[in-house]
């Protein structure tokens, strides 16, 4: 059974622009899929639908649960969204509190939430910075902290929107290593073909709100001439 199942998803922005125009998509357990496509082709809009932050027409199932208001809390614990801008994701006064924010929202007792947060921070190699303020971290540290915040909820799916943005090359390499070691099914929205190639076994290509093609990253790159040179 796929962990994400999307059928006929359509969404129109309040200003009338058709952002998504009939998207069908499946993500299998443990799979890593790259979402490629031009700016404004609907990638981020698509991702925001997966945990109900945007509501369009069509059907979405996450781990077999239909995306409905009464399932929302459960769905948000199963699908972890790492946003493009880590500054938006980190808002608690200290790193430990920020990472524990998700588990506490799941209704977990304090000690258990803290233990989970510590585990997640150690997993991303930031176990020593528990009491730092998130806004004093470097870009790479912020990204890893944001991922820890999502991992602490122990989701079954990780969705990362432009995860390599503002990371230096070693930072990108470390991120790739970290993601590869995580067992969750992953959806990578990215312009970074190199990064997609390193991690994803499959790619989909968004064009004007639809999935125009899917295949291996190589096939997609070749078909749409999706390279810098």
């Amino acid at each position: 059974m796929p962990v994400i199942r999307v059928r006929g998803l359509r969404y129109r922005y309040p200003d009338g622009a058709q952002a998504l125009d009939g998207v069908d998509f499946d993500l299998e357990p443990g799979e890593c899929v790259a979402v490629l496509g031009a700016n404004g082709s609907g990638k981020t809009t698509f991702v925001l639908h997966l945990n109900g932050l945007l509501e369009g027409e069509g059907s979405i199932e996450i781990c077999g649960l239909g995306l409905k208001k009464q399932n929302l809390a459960q769905i948000r614990s199963k699908i972890g969204l790492v946003f493009q801008d880590s500054d938006e994701q980190l808002f608690m006064p200290t790193l430990l509190e920020d990472v524990a924010f998700g588990p506490m929202n799941l209704g977990m007792p304090r000690e258990q939430a803290v233990a989970r947060a510590q585990k997640a921070l150690e997993l991303v190699g930031m176990g020593a910075l528990l009491h730092k303020a998130p806004y004093h971290l470097s870009s790479g540290e912020k990204r890893r902290a944001a991922i820890a915040g999502v991992l602490a909820m122990e989701p079954e799916i990780l969705v990362l929107d432009e995860p390599t943005t503002s990371l230096d090359p070693p930072g990108q390499r470390e991120l790739a290593d970290l993601l590869r070691a995580l067992p969750q099914a992953k959806l990578l929205v990215t312009h970074d073909v190199f990064f997609a190639r390193a991690l994803a076994s499959r790619a989909v290509f968004f064009d004007r709100g639809r999935i125009a093609a899917e295949g291996t990253v190589e096939e997609i790159v070749a078909r749409f001439n999706w390279t810098q040179r």
């Binding site: 925001l48 932050l53 809390a73 969204l81 946003f83 938006e88 924010f101 998700g102 929202n105 999502v150």
Partner: peptide, 8 residues
């Protein structure tokens, strides 16, 4: 939005 995504 990021807060909602983590179950706020």
């Amino acid at each position: 939005r990021a807060m909602l995504a983590r179950g706020f």
